[in-house]
Design a protein around this nucleic acid. Sequence first.
RNA 1: GCCCGCGUGGUGGAAUGGUAGACACAGGGGACUUAAAAUCCCUAGGCCGAAAGGCCAUGCCGGUUCGAGUCCGGCCGCGGGUACCA
Length: 851
Amino acid sequence: MSRYDPATTEARWRQAWDEAGVFTARRDEAKPKYYVLEMFPYPSGRIHMGHVRNYTMGDVVARYKSSCGFSVLHPMGWDAFGMPAENAAMEKGGHPKEWTYGNIAVMRDQMKPLGLSIDWSREFATCDPEYYGQQQSMFIDFMDKGLVYRKNAVVNWDPVDMTVLANEQVIDGKGWRSGAVVERRELTQWFFRISDFAGELLEALDGLKDWPEKVRLMQANWIGKSRGLQFAFDTVGAPEGFDRLEVYTTRPDTLMGASFAAISPDHPLAKALEATDPKVAEFVAECRRIGTSEEALEKAEKKGWDTGIRVRHPLDSSWELPVYIANFILMDYGTGAIFGCPAHDQRDFDFATKYGLPIPPVFVAEDAQEAALAEAFVPMKSERVRYVRGFAGEGVQTGDEAVNAAIDHAEANGYGKGVTNYRLRDWGISRQRYWGCPIPVVHCADCGVVAEKKENLPVRLPDDVSFDVPGNPLDRHPTWRDCACPSCGKAARRETDTMDTFVDSSWYYARFTSPRAATPTDAADVDYWMNVDQYIGGIEHAILHLLYSRFFARAMHICGHLPAKAIEPFNALFTQGMVTHETYATRGADGRPVWQLPEDVIRDETGARLKDGTPVEVGPSIKMSKSKKNVVDPMDIITRYGADTARWFVMSDSPPERDVEWTASGAEATHKHLSRVWRLAHEVTTRGEGNPAHDTDLLRAMHKTIAEVTTGIEGFAFNKAVAKLYEFTNTFAKSDASAAAKRTAMLTMAQLMSPMVPHLSEDIWSMLGGSGLVAGAPWPKADPAMLVEDSVTLPIQINGKRRAEITVPKDMPPAEVEKIALADESVIKFLAGQPVKKLIVVPGRIVNVVV
RNA sequence: GCCCGCGUGGUGGAAUGGUAGACACAGGGGACUUAAAAUCCCUAGGCCGAAAGGCCAUGCCGGUUCGAGUCCGGCCGCGGGUACCA
């Protein structure tokens, strides 16, 4: 063999690893453990470059930690429930189960050639009854501990298809299939009490030192702790039972700037008015057509309906404010009712302007006069302002001080109380869909809602279902719902809601520690393996998945399924960027774009066209998605160049947290580089003796590379580690050191490359007579003595511009450096006799002369 | 709308507040070859200049600093999330 030949060698190495069992995770009490986990994939059909990038990153960490002496757990599974399986069944026929397991088989076959160091013996899918049965068992535990309840909540209702729609399926307020205007509808649904944990989930963020700051910030904002005032207005002209209207505000200091009150269309008062007044009903119905997503509500034009009801101002009972029903007030936050202060809130300002309401300012900038406002004046709460209509505290104070003074004033005078509120809402887990984990409860006419007996678990999904009509097949199944009440034994009906798929992904990391246990977790295994030491996944999961998992771990701990140390399940988190590609489109007869696959497009300097010459429009590089067809099948690259080329490419160039653009030329160049390394290694075995006088230079470079690559991998700077390996390759190629030194250097290079390109590294390792497998060799250590430099080059700046440089011994005292710098020819020339005002010497870094 | 990011040559990117552009891709030039491929060498931010060198330059506008890609304030553009996409 005399050339790099991944097509034949890669499969051989994978077999060698399997036979040696190097990736089987073992509980070894003598070793420190390391649990590395990448967010498991949804089995959509085929793997894409994003998967390759995500799983290669995890694999680099897993292989590196393994060679550092850790007992590593690196598992893989499938987040297998979800809507696409049902959509496929509706569109193409077939069964979600077959579609899902078929996709899993394909994707597993595509992943295996990547040579990931995964312990495949632990694989499972969340749609396996063995998995979701354990989840049902925990649901019942959660019920016992009071963590679950039912209440009414709104869903998107498609009145034509007679089905519930996900927010994603609502496009511009219309159902994606029927095109019908979507309505809001209330259903009784199941909830987890995550909001009981709001304070704890917020405070514990501080302890997540190895999470990205941005993720902690996003979660903190999402939980949204606020301190404010809750009080009640007395109403005038309201229906019976609505004598008072409770409101919550985070800005009680602006109470004197109130100009209206507003309630949510879902507020009980709005519902009472709706029942008797058709015009209110019409307005409320219009509000309900906006949809349920926060984005849709916030972006919709702000509209209100004057109910005619008035409320008395708590500080002046002769002052009456109108009460509006407003489409932007959320029933889920606070009390579902607010007072509007248009002078200091832009949304209220727009509303007041629209409906001709007064805009009295409460405070002005510290040095300003009161004047009519062109827009709301909303300074930071920490800023000092002058209160012109204050009622609590000093005239000039910060917003924070005034808020506290207002709360104190309300409490002292008995018209309100300080309340801590959270934006975080309880987690609604009910889905009116088939392909999910059935909620294991039974509805009995006599006993009410009763949990299924644990010995009857799993409550299995029936296989005989059809998707030819919209709606939930469980609900219309002829027999599946029929069952015996677990409590009294009489005929009863099963719950037909299934669980949100976020439930499935909220504990899979724990299940990986003992995937075949007869209980959700096994105490000894979970104690040894938890926590996940390094979790890796997309930034799009920064809030929901990660917050739900943090809640779920706490709930599991309460039910005895996780030890106390695991209530924060992920010690370190890394969020990686996406893989993007240019988009290509031709135009259809109607002028709309027809997306084209990159493999069908011929791309050169002159532009892009199809093989038949049809011109192609080139669009921006965006996240690879099936709908835009800008996907590159990694299998093509793997087949053509080998897995290591795909792995090396996704690890090089782009920093892992940033998006990376896929280019075909990049893959080819990557392959050339790997071939070059292989060739250089091969030459070590064929070339004669070099010159031992140059050994030290090569070995110094080698030790420097060990240090830099190690730092790079530890810090998730894989692109920099790769760059350093390129640099060392160039040094190596130019070196004519002795054969022995070159052999040492190349064996080390193989080790340093092995987390990224494990197959090629094994090739080189065996070619040069390394012992055993690289996969089993300990990570090389840099010799500190070889890293020391004795002289350093310092740039000299004059007034901040670089004008010269000097080379001095590394430890030269600053006073000496000053002398040499000022004596430098170019410096003298630039100074031209001007006196030196200031001289800054940063040892080892820079000299700056200020004149 | 709101929350969180990101923005550096033709391209991907590098740079504990201290020489902006490491490393690589694409490009240009050359060597080898009958030729091509492969490989190797050189070159390379922009503008001015024969050169030495100078000026400009990290999305835009300001600020802090001896010194700002990096810190602060305000814009613009792009991306992620927005609770039923996963």
